[in-house]
Design a protein around this nucleic acid. Structure first.
Lengths: 200, 200
DNA sequence: TATACGAGACGCACCGTCTCGTCTTTCTGT
DNA sequence: ACAGAAAGACGAGACGGTGCGTCTCGTATA
Protein backbone atom coordinates (compact mmCIF):
# COMPACT_ATOMS: atom_id res chain seq x y z
CA UNK A 1 0.00 0.00 0.00
CA UNK A 2 1.30 3.41 -0.93
CA UNK A 3 1.65 6.23 1.53
CA UNK A 4 1.06 9.02 -0.98
CA UNK A 5 -2.46 10.05 -1.88
CA UNK A 6 -1.06 10.91 -5.29
CA UNK A 7 -1.44 8.08 -7.79
CA UNK A 8 1.80 8.19 -9.82
CA UNK A 9 4.00 10.49 -11.88
CA UNK A 10 5.16 14.06 -11.27
CA UNK A 11 3.19 16.41 -9.02
CA UNK A 12 1.84 19.83 -9.94
CA UNK A 13 4.57 22.35 -10.62
CA UNK A 14 4.38 25.23 -8.15
CA UNK A 15 6.73 27.25 -10.35
CA UNK A 16 4.30 27.01 -13.25
CA UNK A 17 1.35 27.90 -11.04
CA UNK A 18 3.05 31.01 -9.73
CA UNK A 19 4.31 32.03 -13.16
CA UNK A 20 0.80 31.75 -14.58
CA UNK A 21 -0.83 33.81 -11.85
CA UNK A 22 1.93 36.40 -12.01
CA UNK A 23 1.56 36.69 -15.76
CA UNK A 24 -2.21 36.98 -15.40
CA UNK A 25 -1.97 39.77 -12.85
CA UNK A 26 0.66 41.61 -14.88
CA UNK A 27 -1.27 41.44 -18.15
CA UNK A 28 -4.56 42.21 -16.43
CA UNK A 29 -3.19 45.43 -14.97
CA UNK A 30 -1.47 46.57 -18.12
CA UNK A 31 -3.88 45.52 -20.85
CA UNK A 32 -7.24 45.19 -19.12
CA UNK A 33 -9.59 42.24 -18.85
CA UNK A 34 -10.93 42.11 -22.37
CA UNK A 35 -7.46 42.14 -23.89
CA UNK A 36 -6.42 39.35 -21.57
CA UNK A 37 -6.00 36.10 -23.53
CA UNK A 38 -5.07 32.57 -22.55
CA UNK A 39 -2.44 32.46 -25.26
CA UNK A 40 -0.98 35.75 -24.07
CA UNK A 41 -0.78 34.47 -20.51
CA UNK A 42 0.85 31.22 -21.65
CA UNK A 43 3.46 33.12 -23.65
CA UNK A 44 4.10 35.62 -20.85
CA UNK A 45 4.51 32.82 -18.32
CA UNK A 46 6.56 30.63 -20.69
CA UNK A 47 4.09 27.84 -20.17
CA UNK A 48 2.09 25.56 -22.43
CA UNK A 49 -1.59 26.35 -22.88
CA UNK A 50 -2.51 22.88 -21.71
CA UNK A 51 -0.88 23.55 -18.35
CA UNK A 52 -3.26 26.46 -17.85
CA UNK A 53 -6.34 24.58 -19.01
CA UNK A 54 -5.41 21.64 -16.80
CA UNK A 55 -5.91 23.73 -13.67
CA UNK A 56 -8.18 26.63 -14.62
CA UNK A 57 -11.29 26.46 -16.80
CA UNK A 58 -11.29 30.09 -17.99
CA UNK A 59 -9.57 33.43 -17.72
CA UNK A 60 -12.23 34.52 -15.27
CA UNK A 61 -11.12 31.77 -12.90
CA UNK A 62 -7.53 32.95 -13.26
CA UNK A 63 -8.47 36.49 -12.33
CA UNK A 64 -10.53 35.21 -9.42
CA UNK A 65 -7.49 33.31 -8.11
CA UNK A 66 -5.31 36.40 -8.50
CA UNK A 67 -7.84 38.39 -6.51
CA UNK A 68 -7.98 35.65 -3.88
CA UNK A 69 -4.22 35.62 -3.45
CA UNK A 70 -3.99 39.38 -3.25
CA UNK A 71 -2.17 39.86 -6.53
CA UNK A 72 -4.74 42.47 -7.58
CA UNK A 73 -5.91 45.51 -5.63
CA UNK A 74 -2.82 45.12 -3.47
CA UNK A 75 -3.20 46.64 -0.04
CA UNK A 76 -6.41 48.42 -0.83
CA UNK A 77 -7.01 51.96 0.28
CA UNK A 78 -7.42 52.59 3.97
CA UNK A 79 -9.77 55.47 4.82
CA UNK A 80 -8.30 58.06 7.16
CA UNK A 81 -9.59 58.40 10.71
CA UNK A 82 -9.53 62.09 11.54
CA UNK A 83 -12.46 61.83 13.92
CA UNK A 84 -14.85 63.33 11.38
CA UNK A 85 -16.63 60.34 9.87
CA UNK A 86 -18.33 62.21 7.04
CA UNK A 87 -15.19 63.97 5.93
CA UNK A 88 -13.22 60.73 6.00
CA UNK A 89 -15.87 58.90 4.03
CA UNK A 90 -16.06 61.72 1.51
CA UNK A 91 -12.29 61.59 1.08
CA UNK A 92 -12.38 57.82 0.71
CA UNK A 93 -15.12 58.07 -1.89
CA UNK A 94 -13.37 60.87 -3.74
CA UNK A 95 -10.13 58.90 -3.91
CA UNK A 96 -12.06 55.84 -5.01
CA UNK A 97 -13.90 57.73 -7.74
CA UNK A 98 -10.70 59.37 -8.94
CA UNK A 99 -8.98 56.00 -8.97
CA UNK A 100 -11.91 54.54 -10.86
CA UNK A 101 -11.91 57.03 -13.69
CA UNK A 102 -8.20 57.38 -14.24
CA UNK A 103 -7.08 57.26 -17.86
CA UNK A 104 -9.35 57.23 -20.88
CA UNK A 105 -9.44 53.53 -21.44
CA UNK A 106 -9.88 50.60 -19.12
CA UNK A 107 -9.47 51.49 -15.51
CA UNK A 108 -8.57 48.65 -13.20
CA UNK A 109 -11.96 48.76 -11.53
CA UNK A 110 -13.81 48.70 -14.83
CA UNK A 111 -11.78 45.65 -15.81
CA UNK A 112 -12.61 43.98 -12.52
CA UNK A 113 -16.29 44.63 -13.08
CA UNK A 114 -16.00 43.08 -16.53
CA UNK A 115 -14.29 40.06 -15.01
CA UNK A 116 -16.98 39.86 -12.35
CA UNK A 117 -19.74 39.63 -14.96
CA UNK A 118 -18.43 36.34 -16.25
CA UNK A 119 -17.03 34.75 -13.13
CA UNK A 120 -19.03 34.91 -9.94
CA UNK A 121 -16.05 34.51 -7.60
CA UNK A 122 -14.60 37.75 -8.91
CA UNK A 123 -17.85 39.51 -8.14
CA UNK A 124 -18.02 37.99 -4.70
CA UNK A 125 -14.54 39.22 -3.91
CA UNK A 126 -14.81 42.56 -5.65
CA UNK A 127 -16.80 44.35 -2.98
CA UNK A 128 -14.49 43.03 -0.31
CA UNK A 129 -11.40 43.97 -2.28
CA UNK A 130 -12.67 47.53 -2.50
CA UNK A 131 -13.02 47.56 1.25
CA UNK A 132 -16.63 46.71 1.97
CA UNK A 133 -15.87 44.05 4.55
CA UNK A 134 -12.63 45.28 5.96
CA UNK A 135 -11.08 48.71 5.56
CA UNK A 136 -14.20 50.76 4.95
CA UNK A 137 -16.18 48.80 7.48
CA UNK A 138 -13.54 49.40 10.12
CA UNK A 139 -13.90 53.13 9.62
CA UNK A 140 -17.67 52.85 9.97
CA UNK A 141 -17.26 50.92 13.21
CA UNK A 142 -14.98 53.63 14.47
CA UNK A 143 -17.71 56.14 13.60
CA UNK A 144 -20.24 54.16 15.61
CA UNK A 145 -17.87 54.11 18.57
CA UNK A 146 -17.49 57.88 18.29
CA UNK A 147 -21.25 58.33 18.32
CA UNK A 148 -21.35 59.72 14.77
CA UNK A 149 -23.35 56.82 13.45
CA UNK A 150 -26.32 54.98 14.87
CA UNK A 151 -25.32 51.52 16.12
CA UNK A 152 -28.55 50.18 14.70
CA UNK A 153 -27.45 50.58 11.11
CA UNK A 154 -26.06 47.36 9.60
CA UNK A 155 -22.52 48.32 8.63
CA UNK A 156 -22.07 45.55 6.11
CA UNK A 157 -24.93 46.83 4.00
CA UNK A 158 -23.95 50.45 4.52
CA UNK A 159 -20.47 49.76 3.21
CA UNK A 160 -22.00 47.98 0.25
CA UNK A 161 -23.98 51.09 -0.54
CA UNK A 162 -20.81 53.20 -0.71
CA UNK A 163 -19.04 50.65 -2.87
CA UNK A 164 -22.17 50.42 -4.99
CA UNK A 165 -22.24 54.14 -5.67
CA UNK A 166 -18.60 53.93 -6.73
CA UNK A 167 -19.49 51.13 -9.15
CA UNK A 168 -22.40 53.06 -10.62
CA UNK A 169 -20.17 56.08 -11.18
CA UNK A 170 -17.46 53.88 -12.62
CA UNK A 171 -19.86 52.37 -15.15
CA UNK A 172 -21.23 55.78 -16.07
CA UNK A 173 -17.72 57.28 -16.29
CA UNK A 174 -19.15 60.11 -14.23
CA UNK A 175 -16.41 62.44 -13.12
CA UNK A 176 -16.96 63.35 -9.51
CA UNK A 177 -15.55 66.28 -7.56
CA UNK A 178 -14.78 66.30 -3.85
CA UNK A 179 -18.00 68.23 -3.28
CA UNK A 180 -19.91 65.55 -5.16
CA UNK A 181 -18.34 62.88 -2.98
CA UNK A 182 -19.43 64.79 0.09
CA UNK A 183 -22.96 65.06 -1.22
CA UNK A 184 -23.09 61.30 -1.70
CA UNK A 185 -21.96 60.75 1.87
CA UNK A 186 -24.62 63.14 3.12
CA UNK A 187 -27.25 61.47 0.98
CA UNK A 188 -26.51 58.07 2.42
CA UNK A 189 -25.78 58.97 6.02
CA UNK A 190 -28.57 61.49 6.32
CA UNK A 191 -29.12 65.21 6.07
CA UNK A 192 -27.38 66.32 9.24
CA UNK A 193 -24.61 68.14 7.44
CA UNK A 194 -24.78 71.90 7.89
CA UNK A 195 -21.05 72.44 7.57
CA UNK A 196 -20.26 71.90 3.89
CA UNK A 197 -22.39 73.68 1.27
CA UNK A 198 -21.71 71.67 -1.86
CA UNK A 199 -20.66 73.69 -4.90
CA UNK A 200 -19.52 71.28 -7.64
CA UNK B 1 -25.37 74.64 -56.66
CA UNK B 2 -27.18 71.96 -54.78
CA UNK B 3 -30.01 72.64 -52.36
CA UNK B 4 -29.79 69.40 -50.42
CA UNK B 5 -27.35 68.93 -47.57
CA UNK B 6 -27.14 65.34 -48.72
CA UNK B 7 -24.31 64.82 -51.18
CA UNK B 8 -25.59 62.24 -53.65
CA UNK B 9 -26.88 58.70 -53.82
CA UNK B 10 -29.48 56.81 -51.76
CA UNK B 11 -30.28 57.79 -48.21
CA UNK B 12 -29.96 55.58 -45.14
CA UNK B 13 -32.46 52.73 -45.03
CA UNK B 14 -34.75 53.08 -42.02
CA UNK B 15 -35.93 49.49 -42.49
CA UNK B 16 -32.38 48.19 -42.12
CA UNK B 17 -31.76 50.38 -39.08
CA UNK B 18 -34.86 49.10 -37.31
CA UNK B 19 -34.17 45.49 -38.28
CA UNK B 20 -30.65 45.72 -36.87
CA UNK B 21 -31.71 47.22 -33.55
CA UNK B 22 -34.57 44.73 -33.22
CA UNK B 23 -32.23 41.83 -33.88
CA UNK B 24 -29.73 43.22 -31.39
CA UNK B 25 -32.32 43.54 -28.64
CA UNK B 26 -33.73 40.10 -29.35
CA UNK B 27 -30.37 38.34 -29.32
CA UNK B 28 -29.17 40.34 -26.33
CA UNK B 29 -32.13 39.22 -24.25
CA UNK B 30 -31.98 35.60 -25.29
CA UNK B 31 -28.25 34.92 -25.50
CA UNK B 32 -26.63 37.59 -23.32
CA UNK B 33 -24.03 40.20 -24.13
CA UNK B 34 -20.96 38.02 -24.47
CA UNK B 35 -22.67 35.67 -26.89
CA UNK B 36 -23.83 38.61 -28.96
CA UNK B 37 -21.90 38.75 -32.26
CA UNK B 38 -21.96 41.13 -35.19
CA UNK B 39 -22.32 38.23 -37.59
CA UNK B 40 -25.21 36.84 -35.58
CA UNK B 41 -26.96 40.20 -35.63
CA UNK B 42 -26.42 40.57 -39.36
CA UNK B 43 -27.87 37.13 -40.03
CA UNK B 44 -30.81 37.67 -37.68
CA UNK B 45 -31.61 41.03 -39.29
CA UNK B 46 -31.03 39.73 -42.85
CA UNK B 47 -28.54 42.48 -43.40
CA UNK B 48 -24.97 42.71 -44.64
CA UNK B 49 -22.25 43.13 -42.05
CA UNK B 50 -21.04 46.26 -43.81
CA UNK B 51 -24.39 47.92 -43.24
CA UNK B 52 -23.92 47.51 -39.51
CA UNK B 53 -20.31 48.68 -39.48
CA UNK B 54 -21.27 51.68 -41.60
CA UNK B 55 -23.42 53.09 -38.81
CA UNK B 56 -22.18 51.52 -35.57
CA UNK B 57 -18.56 50.99 -34.54
CA UNK B 58 -19.13 48.09 -32.13
CA UNK B 59 -21.71 45.88 -30.51
CA UNK B 60 -21.50 48.06 -27.42
CA UNK B 61 -22.76 51.00 -29.47
CA UNK B 62 -25.64 48.87 -30.75
CA UNK B 63 -26.67 47.95 -27.22
CA UNK B 64 -26.39 51.58 -26.18
CA UNK B 65 -28.75 52.59 -28.99
CA UNK B 66 -31.19 49.86 -28.00
CA UNK B 67 -31.14 51.15 -24.44
CA UNK B 68 -31.62 54.71 -25.67
CA UNK B 69 -34.65 53.77 -27.74
CA UNK B 70 -36.22 51.78 -24.93
CA UNK B 71 -35.82 48.39 -26.59
CA UNK B 72 -34.20 47.02 -23.43
CA UNK B 73 -35.50 47.26 -19.85
CA UNK B 74 -38.90 48.10 -21.29
CA UNK B 75 -41.10 49.97 -18.87
CA UNK B 76 -38.86 49.49 -15.89
CA UNK B 77 -40.26 48.54 -12.53
CA UNK B 78 -42.29 51.14 -10.70
CA UNK B 79 -42.00 51.00 -6.91
CA UNK B 80 -45.31 50.83 -5.08
CA UNK B 81 -46.54 53.78 -3.03
CA UNK B 82 -48.31 52.34 0.00
CA UNK B 83 -47.43 55.28 2.23
CA UNK B 84 -44.68 53.33 3.98
CA UNK B 85 -41.48 54.44 2.30
CA UNK B 86 -39.20 51.84 3.84
CA UNK B 87 -41.50 48.97 3.04
CA UNK B 88 -41.91 50.14 -0.54
CA UNK B 89 -38.18 50.55 -0.99
CA UNK B 90 -37.54 47.13 0.51
CA UNK B 91 -40.05 45.62 -1.90
CA UNK B 92 -38.50 47.45 -4.82
CA UNK B 93 -35.05 46.25 -3.83
CA UNK B 94 -36.23 42.70 -3.26
CA UNK B 95 -37.88 42.57 -6.68
CA UNK B 96 -34.77 44.07 -8.21
CA UNK B 97 -32.47 41.57 -6.54
CA UNK B 98 -34.71 38.68 -7.48
CA UNK B 99 -34.84 39.93 -11.06
CA UNK B 100 -31.08 40.28 -11.06
CA UNK B 101 -30.30 36.75 -10.01
CA UNK B 102 -32.86 34.88 -12.04
CA UNK B 103 -31.56 31.83 -13.90
CA UNK B 104 -28.15 30.27 -13.54
CA UNK B 105 -26.47 31.97 -16.44
CA UNK B 106 -26.50 35.51 -17.68
CA UNK B 107 -29.20 37.62 -16.18
CA UNK B 108 -30.25 40.65 -18.17
CA UNK B 109 -28.73 43.01 -15.62
CA UNK B 110 -25.43 41.14 -15.58
CA UNK B 111 -25.32 41.39 -19.35
CA UNK B 112 -26.03 45.10 -19.18
CA UNK B 113 -23.20 45.56 -16.72
CA UNK B 114 -20.90 43.68 -19.07
CA UNK B 115 -22.02 45.93 -21.92
CA UNK B 116 -21.48 48.98 -19.74
CA UNK B 117 -17.85 48.05 -19.10
CA UNK B 118 -16.97 48.45 -22.74
CA UNK B 119 -19.29 51.22 -23.84
CA UNK B 120 -19.67 54.26 -21.63
CA UNK B 121 -23.10 55.23 -22.98
CA UNK B 122 -24.53 51.96 -21.72
CA UNK B 123 -23.16 52.69 -18.28
CA UNK B 124 -24.50 56.20 -18.33
CA UNK B 125 -27.98 54.97 -19.17
CA UNK B 126 -27.91 51.87 -16.99
CA UNK B 127 -28.56 53.59 -13.68
CA UNK B 128 -31.37 55.59 -15.23
CA UNK B 129 -32.84 52.51 -16.85
CA UNK B 130 -32.96 50.81 -13.47
CA UNK B 131 -34.88 53.77 -12.13
CA UNK B 132 -32.30 56.00 -10.47
CA UNK B 133 -33.46 59.17 -12.17
CA UNK B 134 -37.11 58.52 -12.67
CA UNK B 135 -39.20 55.76 -11.07
CA UNK B 136 -37.21 55.19 -7.90
CA UNK B 137 -36.53 58.87 -7.49
CA UNK B 138 -40.22 59.66 -7.75
CA UNK B 139 -40.92 57.31 -4.84
CA UNK B 140 -38.22 59.02 -2.80
CA UNK B 141 -39.75 62.43 -3.53
CA UNK B 142 -43.08 61.11 -2.40
CA UNK B 143 -41.40 59.99 0.81
CA UNK B 144 -40.00 63.44 1.37
CA UNK B 145 -43.47 64.93 0.85
CA UNK B 146 -44.84 62.48 3.42
CA UNK B 147 -42.22 63.52 5.94
CA UNK B 148 -40.57 60.10 5.99
CA UNK B 149 -37.33 61.38 4.55
CA UNK B 150 -35.34 64.48 5.29
CA UNK B 151 -35.64 67.02 2.45
CA UNK B 152 -31.95 67.77 2.87
CA UNK B 153 -30.85 64.45 1.46
CA UNK B 154 -29.93 64.60 -2.24
CA UNK B 155 -32.32 62.14 -3.84
CA UNK B 156 -30.27 61.62 -6.97
CA UNK B 157 -27.36 60.28 -4.97
CA UNK B 158 -29.62 58.33 -2.64
CA UNK B 159 -31.22 56.55 -5.57
CA UNK B 160 -27.76 55.81 -6.93
CA UNK B 161 -26.90 54.15 -3.64
CA UNK B 162 -29.86 51.79 -3.90
CA UNK B 163 -29.08 50.94 -7.51
CA UNK B 164 -25.45 50.53 -6.51
CA UNK B 165 -26.27 47.96 -3.84
CA UNK B 166 -28.30 46.06 -6.42
CA UNK B 167 -25.30 46.06 -8.76
CA UNK B 168 -22.94 44.85 -6.04
CA UNK B 169 -25.29 42.01 -5.18
CA UNK B 170 -25.74 41.19 -8.86
CA UNK B 171 -21.99 40.92 -9.38
CA UNK B 172 -21.60 38.82 -6.24
CA UNK B 173 -24.57 36.59 -7.18
CA UNK B 174 -25.64 37.09 -3.60
CA UNK B 175 -29.09 35.71 -3.07
CA UNK B 176 -31.08 38.15 -1.01
CA UNK B 177 -34.24 37.54 0.98
CA UNK B 178 -36.95 40.08 1.67
CA UNK B 179 -35.55 40.54 5.17
CA UNK B 180 -32.14 41.22 3.65
CA UNK B 181 -33.66 43.84 1.38
CA UNK B 182 -35.26 45.47 4.37
CA UNK B 183 -31.96 45.53 6.22
CA UNK B 184 -30.32 47.29 3.29
CA UNK B 185 -33.04 49.93 3.28
CA UNK B 186 -32.61 50.46 7.01
CA UNK B 187 -28.86 50.64 6.63
CA UNK B 188 -29.07 53.38 4.03
CA UNK B 189 -31.99 55.37 5.38
CA UNK B 190 -30.96 55.15 9.02
CA UNK B 191 -31.62 53.10 12.10
CA UNK B 192 -35.16 54.27 12.85
CA UNK B 193 -36.73 50.91 12.13
CA UNK B 194 -38.10 49.25 15.25
CA UNK B 195 -40.88 47.43 13.41
CA UNK B 196 -39.14 44.72 11.42
CA UNK B 197 -36.61 42.51 13.19
CA UNK B 198 -34.63 41.03 10.34
CA UNK B 199 -34.27 37.27 10.38
CA UNK B 200 -32.81 36.07 7.06
C1' DT C 1 4.45 3.19 -15.58
C1' DA C 2 1.76 7.16 -15.10
C1' DT C 3 1.47 11.82 -15.70
C1' DA C 4 2.79 16.96 -15.58
C1' DC C 5 5.28 19.71 -18.42
C1' DG C 6 6.64 23.05 -22.80
C1' DA C 7 5.56 23.51 -27.36
C1' DG C 8 2.68 24.02 -30.88
C1' DA C 9 -0.57 22.12 -34.67
C1' DC C 10 -5.46 21.77 -35.51
C1' DG C 11 -10.30 23.12 -36.72
C1' DC C 12 -13.56 26.46 -35.37
C1' DA C 13 -15.89 31.02 -34.46
C1' DC C 14 -15.81 35.65 -34.95
C1' DC C 15 -13.45 39.82 -36.05
C1' DG C 16 -13.14 44.00 -39.16
C1' DT C 17 -12.10 45.07 -44.03
C1' DC C 18 -12.82 44.46 -48.74
C1' DT C 19 -15.03 43.57 -53.04
C1' DC C 20 -18.72 42.29 -55.82
C1' DG C 21 -23.35 43.44 -58.38
C1' DT C 22 -27.74 45.93 -57.65
C1' DC C 23 -30.59 49.73 -56.70
C1' DT C 24 -31.74 54.52 -55.37
C1' DT C 25 -30.90 59.34 -55.31
C1' DT C 26 -29.02 63.70 -57.08
C1' DC C 27 -26.20 66.33 -60.25
C1' DT C 28 -24.90 67.53 -65.07
C1' DG C 29 -25.18 68.13 -70.07
C1' DT C 30 -27.81 68.58 -73.87
C1' DA D 1 -37.26 68.11 -69.89
C1' DC D 2 -34.90 64.18 -69.77
C1' DA D 3 -31.18 60.94 -70.35
C1' DG D 4 -27.25 59.67 -68.58
C1' DA D 5 -23.41 59.89 -65.10
C1' DA D 6 -21.80 59.94 -60.46
C1' DA D 7 -22.10 58.66 -55.80
C1' DG D 8 -23.19 55.92 -52.35
C1' DA D 9 -26.29 52.58 -49.51
C1' DC D 10 -27.60 47.99 -49.79
C1' DG D 11 -27.30 42.32 -49.35
C1' DA D 12 -24.05 38.89 -49.73
C1' DG D 13 -20.06 36.89 -48.64
C1' DA D 14 -14.78 36.13 -49.37
C1' DC D 15 -10.58 37.20 -46.98
C1' DG D 16 -6.66 37.11 -43.59
C1' DG D 17 -6.08 37.60 -38.70
C1' DT D 18 -6.75 36.35 -33.83
C1' DG D 19 -8.01 33.72 -30.05
C1' DC D 20 -10.47 29.68 -28.63
C1' DG D 21 -10.31 24.90 -26.60
C1' DT D 22 -8.62 20.28 -27.84
C1' DC D 23 -5.17 17.29 -29.28
C1' DT D 24 -0.73 15.25 -29.82
C1' DC D 25 4.08 15.20 -29.64
C1' DG D 26 8.68 14.38 -26.93
C1' DT D 27 10.80 15.11 -22.36
C1' DA D 28 11.19 15.01 -17.43
C1' DT D 29 9.82 13.36 -12.95
C1' DA D 30 7.56 10.64 -9.37
Amino acid sequence: MQVSEHRRGPIRSEAARVAILDATARLFETRGYDHLTMEGIAAEAHVGKQTIYRWWPSKGALVADCLLEGRLLVGGYTPADSGDLRADLATWLHVMLTFVERQGGDSLVLSLIAAATDHSDVGARLAEGLGANSLLRARLESGVAAGQLSPERPLEELAEAFVGVALVRALGRTSSSAAEARRIVDAVLGGAAPSAPATP
